[in-house]
Design a protein around this nucleic acid. Structure first.
Lengths: 154, 154
DNA sequence: TCCATACTTGACAATTATAGTAAGGTATGT
DNA sequence: ACATACCTTACTATAATTGTCAAGTATGGA
């Protein structure tokens, strides 16, 4: 029951972007340095985040990424779903899955369904604004986390 | 954010055990047949479930497994945790993890912490009794699910 | 006693998913 | 033009998970 590092990185990167952008684009290079996330990996993440219309990009020198919406209109759940595809605890809940033909008979189905709803509900109850507000109230150094703290591979 | 098939199998197997045991031990062979779970795999699961004191075993012919407690005193969350080790969405929440030395600085930490609590809270709010009650109200055939329904490997 | 049943346990192979790397391309401001 | 920085695909290494195999031990009954 682990979240992918993609999702963890994505949320951290979005918080960083939100904190350090003041209207202007923030380059992935900056985010990569502050958050200690490999640049190439970040590029992949932001590729998805852009497709998911959570950020917009500005090309060329001085370019970078900008939030597509206000901080308080971006839910953590959105970010996670965008980079992680599905947020269902079991495969047979995925859209397009046909293996679960008779879900009415499956006693455990409703448990996993309910679990998925709780997970989404919770992550959708937190916005980027909540996280940046939290971050600004802290004596942070570089990046929204300290070096070595909460590294996914830790 | 997927539950392991171990956990899915374990819950189904426990429901099966609960449904078909009437005080007497149920053999893994039976459960294996009804639920279409490989016998050897079931053995591994029940090894853990026994260690977790959720079931007890009776050896020899006519033996098998019995619930260690009443149906309504066994939570789904317990079963899942027992076979799945951890139910934390990120590694740095695991007990004994030292990589997250300065969690006070980590803005996203509380999100994952809260998520873990919701997951555990939900799964602990459902008991085996809830599931068997549900199952008995259904026109089920063999096993608590129909053939091919909700197979983890989908 | 002997045997079949069924639990017990460890080791291991195959498959899959994930994380991370690499490389080349495209757009654009100076 | 040229440097910057986004864009996109492909690939590899590694880890986890799933599932198999095999060899035990305990025990009830014929």
């Amino acid at each position: 029951m682990r979240l992918s590092t993609r999702a963890q990185y994505a949320v951290r990167a979005m918080v960083d972007l939100s904190l350090y952008s003041e209207g202007r684009p923030v380059s992935l290079k900056e985010i990569s340095r502050r958050e200690e996330i490999p640049l190439n990996y970040l590029e992949q993440l932001f590729f998805r985040l852009k497709k998911g219309q959570i950020v917009t990009s500005v090309r060329g020198p001085g370019g970078g990424y900008v939030l597509a919406r206000q901080e308080d209109a971006i839910k953590v759940g959105e970010i996670v779903v965008t980079v992680e595809e599905q947020l269902n605890p079991v495969a047979c809940l995925d859209e397009g899955d046909r293996s679960c033909r008779r879900e009415a008979h499956c006693v455990t189905h409703f448990v996993w369904q309910g679990l998925g709803e709780r997970i989404r509900g919770f992550l959708d109850s937190i916005t980027l604004a909540d996280l940046t507000r939290e971050a600004r109230n802290r004596p942070a150094g570089e990046g929204n986390i300290e070096k070595g703290a909460c590294k996914p591979t830790g």
